[in-house]
Design a protein around this nucleic acid. Structure first.
Length: 581
RNA sequence: GGACCCAUAGCUCAACUGGAUAGAGUACUUGACUUCGAAUCAAGGGGUUGGGGGUUCGAAUCCUCCUGGGUCCGCCA
């Protein structure tokens, strides 16, 4: 299905023949042989580095190998010409019929064009967002949410069996604080005066939760000691926050497959079990850490703690898993959680963290490496922080000043599609400037509309064709040979469509969904360019009033473009547009 | 002091995990709608890829040192 893969097979085949003919030694390592689109179109359609990669091991001049390989490849039907260039590149020109055949192939496969066997149904767990269940999601969480979801969609498309997971931090003291805050709102709902002290959360979003608690338990908890109501209120409040968070995610079209509770690890031996596993590998010991260098810690004094020997798995220092008072550190349940994931037999784990958690990468990798005996692939993707701008000015978020921007504020103002696309049109490890006014302007520096516009224009052609009485029969179009599609602007589109399966594979291998966004932008550009050529060259217009069959061929062509745009947008979680408003 | 991320055209960003002469958008200049939607297109200049050294057929990409920016740094979660 992937043309580049196919041509590479041909190249490898010819290399084998050369070995058989004694022109190359046997036992050559062909792994480094690639077939790629050249950066400069003047160099042809595809280029292979085969001669240069093999030259050393074959003890031959790369150009000499290239010459021989070129002759062999040139005799193949699908290859028009094959020439040696530069230090030993082999530039291939593919027969135009191959490009023309792309359109019917895309139509035939529809939205499964570009799906690859890469994942081979192996099971991958993508953990993302995992925000504390103490309030609504804010802008900072949005990028991780969108990235994690798009990555999940991408991996599904590439043939992986994906589980989207959210780790609920409901085991620490912050959920106690949440419970106390809700209790205050509960008292308030009973008409009492309350003050939010001791770091309790004063946010308005807890008012309805306090009210709901009142509806549930009436006046039962008034004037009662904390131990009487804490457990119940904590659960009640956490549940309320999680449904709030689920709604936030739903507003971006995100749905998790699994929510994993930190609390569920406690009291049932899960943490002990994970630590026991490490202990059996001699990775747990009692010891004293050196004080952190350079940074002054006010009340630092050496203490004996239970430590994980993470340095044996690539970490810089060993990490405490138990505090000096015997309680677990935050790291301990994290270890247990990842042990559970390993235990659930995932072939691959991916964690999406905010950049502020970058310091945890090494220790988590060490933990998974140790727990799984290096058998489970584990990747951690950091999403850099989002800097908000309003009127060109940096916009500082502050709970106190009331300039706290929630995910919901953002989606309500900007819309899910724009939010998602903008956040995905950037490498995950590059910081992102999000300017409210710019994305709201719907101006053309906004790539979403550029891609959407291409999609809307294609739909528009179909509407026009319908008015003109031209009926497009997809099945019939699939049997066409497209031999009248010859203009370079049209062939350029075919070539771009041919790159799609390969691009999906690269994006999936690198866990980088932003590549999809950039590809779509390029494809839309090629389409817009062709569209405008129709202004000058009437034969390039899609609707040829007097020529029914020709119109259908061209409609099949842009229909193929629409298929790939739709698939691509679907990976990004964005709806393709049929109209622009 | 240390770890991690980053540095590419005036600005915002790409560059197919090592490929050929580093590309888009924006801004600036000029042109294209009696036409399938001008939210579009075409043309123009703009670079020692922060700096030095190394690895090899070949480096923005890998290694090393330096400069500058961000995040983080024992029992908080």
């Amino acid at each position: 299905m992937d043309l580049f893969f196919k041509v590479r097979q041909y190249v490898l085949g010819e290399l084998d023949s050369m070995v058989a003919a004694g022109e190359l030694p046997s036992n050559l390592d062909m792994a480094g042989v690639t077939v790629e689109p050249p950066r400069d179109p003047l160099h042809g359609d595809m280029a292979t580095n085969a001669a240069m990669v093999l030259a050393k091991a074959a003890k031959k001049n790369p150009r000499e190998i290239a010459e021989k390989l070129a002759k062999r490849l040139a005799s193949l039907d699908i290859i028009d010409s094959s020439e040696v260039a530069g230090p030993g590149f082999l530039n291939l020109r593919i027969n135009v019929k191959v490009w023309q055949s792309i359109f019917s192939k895309v139509l035939e496969l529809g939205n499964s064009y570009g799906r690859t066997g890469l994942g081979n149904n192996s099971r991958v767990n993508v953990e993302f967002v995992s925000a504390n269940p103490t309030g609504p999601l804010h802008v900072g969480h949005t990028r991780g949410a969108v990235f994690g979801d798009a990555l999940s969609r991408l991996l599904s498309f590439a043939g992986y069996d994906v589980t989207r997971e959210y780790y609920i931090n409901d085991g620490g003291s912050q959920v106690d604080t949440l419970a106390r805050s809700v209790y205050l709102r509960y008292l308030e709902a009973h008409g009492k005066d309350v003050a939010f002290e001791d770091g309790t959360y004063p946010g308005d979003y807890l008012i309805p939760v306090g009210q709901a608690l009142k509806d549930k338990v009436g006046s039962d908890y008034i004037d009662k000691a904390e131990h009487y109501w804490l457990d119940d209120v904590r659960q009640f409040a956490t549940d309320a926050m999680m449904s709030l968070i689920k709604e936030d995610l739903a507003s971006l079209g995100i749905e998790m497959d699994n929510f994993f509770s930190e609390k569920s690890l406690y009291g049932v031996g899960k943490i002990e079990e994970a630590i026991e596993n490490l202990k059996s590998k001699n990775l747990i010991y009692e010891g004293v850490l050196d004080p952190p260098k350079g940074k002054k810690v006010e009340d630092w004094e050496p203490r004996v703690q239970t430590l994980f020997k993470s340095t044996l798995h690539g970490d810089d220092v060993d990490r405490p898993i138990k505090k000096s008072d015997g309680a677990w550190t935050y790291f301990a349940p994290d270890i247990a959680y990842h042990f559970d994931k390993v235990d659930r037999k995932f072939d691959q784990l991916i964690d999406v963290f905010g950049a502020d958690h970058g310091g945890y990468v090494k220790r988590m990798k060490a933990a998974v490496s140790a727990l799984s005996n290096d058998e489970v692939k584990f990747d951690i993707k950091l999403t850099q922080l989002v800097k908000l701008f309003k009127n060109g000015e940096p916009f500082k978020m502050s709970k106190r000043a009331g300039t706290f921007v929630t995910l919901r504020d953002l989606v309500d103002q900007v819309g899910s599609d724009v939010t998602r696309f903008v956040m995905l049109t950037r490498k995950n490890d590059a910081p992102l400037d999000f300017d409210f006014d710019k994305v709201l302007e719907q101006s053309r520096d906004n790539p979403v509309y550029y891609v959407q516009y291409a999609s809307a224009r294609i739909h528009s052609v179909f509407r026009k064709a319908d008015e003109a009485g031209i009926t497009f029969d997809k099945k019939q179009a699939m049997n066409e040979r497209f031999e009248t599609v010859t203009h370079e602007a049209e062939i350029k589109i075919a070539k771009k469509l041919a790159e799609w399966p390969r691009l999906v594979e690269i994006a999936a291998k690198t866990n980088e969904p932003h590549r999809i966004a950039f590809y779509l932008y390029d494809l839309a550009g090629d389409f817009h360019s062709l569209w405008n050529k129709g202004n000058e060259i009437s034969e390039l217009r899609f609707i040829q009033e007097e020529h029914h069959r020709e119109s259908c061929i061209k409609m099949a062509m842009i229909s193929a473009v629409l298929v790939v745009i739709s698939s691509g947008l679907d990976i990004l979680g964005v709806e393709p547009a049929t109209h622009m408003n």
